[in-house]
Amino acid sequence: MIQTVAELLFQGATLGVLYGMIGAGLALTFGILKVVNLAHGVFITIGAFIAIWLTSLMPTVPLALIIVATTVLCALLGAALQYAVIERAMTFRDPSVPMMVTFGVSVIFTNALAQFAGADLRSLGVGSIAQKSLSVGPFNFGLFPLLTLIFVAVVFIAVDATIRKTRFGREVRALSDRPDIAALMGVRVRLVHAQVAALAAALAGVAGVLLAMRASVSPFSGGENLMIAFEVVVLGRLGSTKGALLAGIFLGIVQIVSLRFDSNAGLLYVHLSFILILVFWAASGKLK
């Protein structure tokens, strides 16, 4: 019994950190730029397809390099999109303008991806490591999920340290608090916005690679990714990357445990638990 529970929790946590990663970029753009980026889901899909494309182009290149290249390409795309499009949309007082613009961007990117890569489901092979496992006493853990867990933990620690300890992070937090006063202090608002968008897109790219290693993706997976990201960001108390990680782990555990009892459930209980928590927060006055 304990063995089963431990393995379920482990599987839930490994799926959950992926969900946390899916939501982390959206948490950044919402928390700092105050933009609900509806193109975030498609950025995850783009990350997955870039990694798949690079692997097919250079099959001998190590996966670590593929991840780095995907992250850099996604970051550049995110920064360019922010600088050329979203920044202009942000000058409108109405917050729905950037939301509509990013929705338009997601439609364009999804269809462009389908046009160039085809509509088939794809995935990223990780080789023999997928079958390896690690035994600790009576417990048996998959090696690949364990490495994913460690990798995501390192990424989150690095992002958290960047936001808390560096000059860039200081400027980001100041900009999030009071953009006008931050500008008075000499903070380059547009540059920092582009850097934050790059970071968010890079995280989306990493999430895309992890997703493609775990499951199949199609150019139309963006909507499902966005829904997960949205739930993670809301449960993580809007704008907190740490909150997004914890919310992701919670939803991952809910999904794995619910699949144990109902193998056809898919994401049903994940969405249900999200709604129930929102209702509970609303009833107890915690929903702001």
Binding site: R173, A174, S176, D177, D180, A182, A183, L184, M185, G186
Partner: peptide, 23 residues
């Protein structure tokens, strides 16, 4: 252009202080 004013040597102590709470 706030950066131009900052570079020119103007600095504001704003009404209500408006400090950065996250810092």
């Amino acid at each position: 252009r706030p950066r131009a004013s900052a570079s020119a040597g103007l600095a504001l102590v704003p009404e209500g202080r408006l400090l950065f709470e996250s810092l």
